[in-house]
Design a protein around this nucleic acid. Structure first.
Lengths: 381, 381
DNA sequence: ATGTAGGCGCTACGCCGACAA
DNA sequence: TTGTCGGCGTAGCGCCTACAT
């Protein structure tokens, strides 16, 4: 598993990244959105910038994914992925076989739990209160003949550090607790109330331990290295150079920094853009992650379809759908989404049709997405 | 002083930056070296990258400095400067008046001291041992009639946080110590033995407090935002775009990240490049910072003059001088320096001559540095 | 089922001189 | 002059149960 230094346990990475995050397979085709990438940089640096537009850079690049590695920040344990993408020539776009990589949301580990830390969990006054079902599911069973039942747990984090905890079942009423060892973990990881920890009991009978920090309002980036303008220009220039020369380039994808997956499975993209009817007024649903790290669907209505940034990124499909949400719990959900993020609520079958339905409106005719690639050459399952 | 948020105390910033660091004045002319900037990025990210060359970007840009602000990283207290530079058109390069901004090393504060922390200073076992002369110079005088003499000190750091310390003069033999309050400071700033602290007693009778971390071997950058390749391309593209349109761009200068000052006072540059004889075999001296935060001169001999990177940056003056050092204390000093960093040891007067001596070799004739700017138009004091 | 608080033992933090370098 | 140590008193860490939600 640890072939390269800095590459982390895949199971644990996905658990920390959350149930909605999926990474494309190595070798598969993907669509890269500079605009989405730019959005992530803006979210990371907390700066909106006004960079010059890059007319030579199309709003999306069809790429082959040469490499994906999973990493975690040494300081914060924040998970991120490094991807090496190579833009495909028109020839290569034509001449392909498509692995059926739909990028279904990665399966979360079987035996795991995630708990948001309470004030008591993080205070120096005591230990960690383990939810009962969680303890029974992911911790090795206790010897209940002892009084009180207790054992030592050793859990490994993303950096292969081992943490020892005393797991004890006591109190009135009885409960599972982590005592000795817990506070050093909390202070080493600098956890505060509101952050989450997650434990995994994997198939090799190893205990893995991850951390998810609460969304601090300002994740103030150490922008002391390069200006955010230069970052934006850099990403655009790197992509443009790669596109012009069909040479590989590298991006970092930080799934928890901002809700913008800017590298999309090719087939998912094609399905959404070419094989799905979308129109104003249409109802849809979309998956979101809950506080408890599970998924739930929110429903909404399409209120408009238009370019998000018509000057810089004309005819881009990135966040081209304006939506209204049924549950108006503040403005916490994006007012704009991308076609492939939502699932239209229709009665007729969409994907099984042998005759793909070309999107009629509102896209301008002849949208120049896959030059040289005929639609009926697409291999859909 | 605190007009803008994030802008820090100038005195304290300079003390933390060290005696050799000077910032050009706002409004003055400077020379910007993309190559040097690239070097700093490489040092910050610990990655050498192989970026495509940018033939349209000259190895140096003459710019006007529109803005300089001093900052400090919230996490690490690392000082850095943000500069807004505007490349000058040929017309503007001709039509100028030059403020006599030679960028002499900034004067360090009068009453200050800097101490490298010992194991005892940072252990949980005790407080901070204040060097006697330092305490007498920068701390308010103690009332020696009390037994023991003691007082409470309040010092402000770069982020305007206040830290309280008990300052006491006791022991046998007598010594100055900081006791209560010291350990919380050490743990809050995460100081370890080898790091330095510095105190300033300024003219407003305020006590300022700064931190300098030891050069940890690997200052592993959180590169989880943007690839180092994109950073390099970004800096080059941003500079190229600015040069092409004569529009302002922003850079960050981190004086302690790496010994490469990539924004140089214009007059200093002109002096060094056009008005100084340099030849192989010539002796010179150069300033360095000592452990104790003072300057000292090292002597050396020029062993060669050539492009550092002849493919990417032909005819650049950045680190064009190969040197050998008299004291060969390991390879801790750069084997290549730039002309303006060194002071040639000659007997004839150099700067006062009314007829500037054009550098004969090894520069190729007609080096295209200041197109449209005749040398005798330069205004040297 | 689980968050918080009171009780209290004991570790280690932190203040002190004594040395020595 | 100043770094480190042995000495100690005590704050607060951390283990326990009680109680409330």
């Amino acid at each position: 598993m640890e072939g390269k230094k800095g590459v982390v346990n895949s199971e644990l990475w996905h658990a920390c990244a959350g149930p909605l995050v999926s990474l494309p397979n190595v070798g598969s085709r993907v669509v890269y959105f500079p605009q989405g990438h730019s959005e992530q940089i803006a979210a990371s640096t907390n700066k909106e910038v006004d960079v010059p537009s890059y007319p030579s850079l199309p709003p999306q690049l069809i790429c082959q994914l040469h490499n994906v590695t999973m990493h975690a920040d040494v300081e914060t344990d924040e998970v991120y992925a490094q991807m090496t993408l190579q833009p495909l020539t028109e020839e290569e776009q034509k001449d392909f076989y498509l692995p059926a990589d739909l990028g279904l949301p990665s399966k979360q580990p079987m035996n795991y739990f995630c708990k948001t830390l309470t004030a008591s969990d993080t205070s120096t006054h005591g230990g960690f209160s383990v939810p009962r079902r969680a303890a029974e599911k992911v911790f090795p069973p206790l010897d209940y003949t002892r009084q009180p039942p207790a054992q030592e747990l050793i859990a490994r984090d993303l950096h292969e550090n081992e943490w020892k905890f005393r797991h004890i079942f006591r109190g009135q009423p009885k409960r599972h607790l982590l005592t000795t060892g817990w506070s050093v973990f909390v202070s080493a990881k600098r956890l505060v109330a509101g952050d989450s920890v997650l434990f995994i009991w994997n198939e090799k009978n190893e205990l893995l331990l991850g951390v998810r920090r609460a969304n601090r309002p300002q994740t103030v980036m150490p922008s002391s290295v390069i200006s955010s303008d230069s970052m934006h220009i850099g990403l655009l220039a790197a992509a443009a150079h790669a596109a012009a020369t069909n040479s590989p380039f590298t991006v970092f994808y930080n799934p928890r920094a901002s809700p913008c997956e800017f590298v999309i499975h090719f087939t998912k993209y094609v399905k959404a853009v070419y094989h799905t009817r979308m129109s104003v007024g249409m109802r849809f649903r979309m998956l979101f992650e809950t506080e408890e790290s599970t998924v739930r669907r929110y429903m909404g209505t399409i209120t408009g379809i238009s370019d998000m940034d018509s000057t810089r990124w004309p005819k881009s499909n990135w966040r081209s759908v304006k939506v209204g949400w049924d549950e108006s719990t503040a403005g916490e959900r994006q007012p704009r989404v991308s076609l492939w993020e939502i699932e239209p609520l229709t009665t007729f079958p969409m994907y099984s049709s042998p005759f793909p339905v070309r999107l009629k409106r509102p896209w301008p005719s002849g949208l120049p997405l896959f030059q040289g690639l005929r639609e009926d050459e697409l291999c859909m399952e």
